[in-house]
Simulated scan of single mutants.
Amino acid sequence: MKNKKRIRFLNGFLNIILVFTTLLFIILIFSAFKTADRNIINIILEIILGLIFFGSYFMITFTLKKILKLIRDKNPFNINNITYFKRIGYYIFIVGVTDAIINYPKPTNLGFEIMSTQYGSLKPIFFLYLVLSILSLILSDVFRMAMEIKQENDLTV
């Protein structure tokens, strides 16, 4: 019973994140066109980077909902979850690279910059994205191993 409540809560929370991500992208589009002193190339570039950034977040959340559905169906160790965790790892990496591109020229208030040049620097958050991406890929391998062990145990009856 406790597990079902947790799954319902997480599913509702992921739905809120999906709506919030969609709204943020719509706000980004409207704010890109609202500023009059920018040229069309900057507006298009901002929309493309925003689409990649928010689209990746949207896909991460959507893929997490698929994983949660398989957990709710009591089938967590199957080939789909392995694929989903790999996808999440790639999406997080894309978000990290996009964030690094967007925030490279912006100064940080933390006073901590990595690979700093006169034009910009990598921010520490990029390495967090990198670690989360690797973590998701490792989870994919763990789920693959668990699925193989489960299949071996099913055969030894």
Rank of each mutant, 00 (worst) to 15 (best):
N42M: 13
G89N: 02
F30T: 08
Y129D: 00
K74H: 10
F54R: 04
D73I: 09
F20M: 11
L24F: 09
I88S: 01
S136D: 04
K4N: 14
F77D: 02
K106Y: 13
E148M: 14
F9G: 07
K65H: 06
I149T: 13
T35R: 09
I27R: 04
D141Q: 15
I92C: 01
F127T: 02
Y57F: 11
G89I: 00
K69Q: 12
Y90P: 01
F62D: 05
L51I: 07
L135I: 13
I48L: 12
Y119M: 11
L51R: 04
D141M: 11
F85A: 01
G55C: 06
Q118D: 13
S140Y: 04
I94T: 04
L10R: 07
D37V: 11
K86H: 14
Y84K: 03
E152R: 10
E46S: 12
T22P: 00
S136C: 08
M59A: 14
L135D: 10
R72Q: 15
I44V: 13
I47N: 04
D99V: 08
G120M: 03
K123L: 07
I40Y: 08
F62V: 05
L23Q: 00
G120A: 09
L130C: 01
I48M: 09
Y57Q: 02
D37Y: 10
F20Q: 10
I41A: 13
Y57D: 01
R38V: 15
K86F: 13
I101S: 02
F53R: 05
L51G: 12
L28G: 05
I88G: 01
F20W: 09
K69Y: 09
L64V: 04
M147L: 15
S140M: 05
D141F: 14
I48N: 06
I88T: 01
N75H: 11
K2H: 12
I7Q: 09
Q151D: 15
K2L: 14
Y119L: 15
L14T: 05
N153P: 03
S136K: 04
L139V: 03
I27E: 05
I52L: 06
E113T: 10
